[in-house]
């Protein structure tokens, strides 16, 4: 299991997407597990893990609407362009 204190990065590697590649960063330390980002995403990019934190499982589906980012009440979610591991928040 991932430590709650670490910043977790996810990016989709395999599937080709019509949108630019995008990664998400979830600040577990700030996230309060309200579920807004995953519930309101129309493309189901996120899945809630067993601890209740959102995990971006299908970032390739993301159409960059930014809904999840702007509605995160805790600034715990960032969207980052490019491949996994290139960015730190």
């Amino acid at each position: 299991m991932l430590s709650k204190k670490t910043k977790v990065k996810y990016t989709e590697k395999k599937k080709k997407s019509k949108y630019p590649k995008v990664g998400f960063v979830v600040f577990d330390k700030w996230c309060k597990r309200c579920g807004i980002c995953s519930e309101l995403c129309i493309h189901n990019v996120f899945r809630i893990d067993e601890d209740g934190y959102p995990r971006p499982v299908k970032p390739v589906e993301c159409n960059l609407c930014g809904f999840c980012i702007t509605r995160c009440p805790d600034f715990a979610l960032r969207m980052i362009e490019g491949k996994s591991g290139e960015h730190s928040a």
Binding site: K32, I80, E81
Partner: peptide, 25 residues
Amino acid sequence: MQKDIDVYQYLRHEKKFPLIWCAGC
């Protein structure tokens, strides 16, 4: 994307986070 980039420079994120408010507030 542009939604994301500029918010953090306005936050005292190194000092006062996480926010005091309840989940979902």
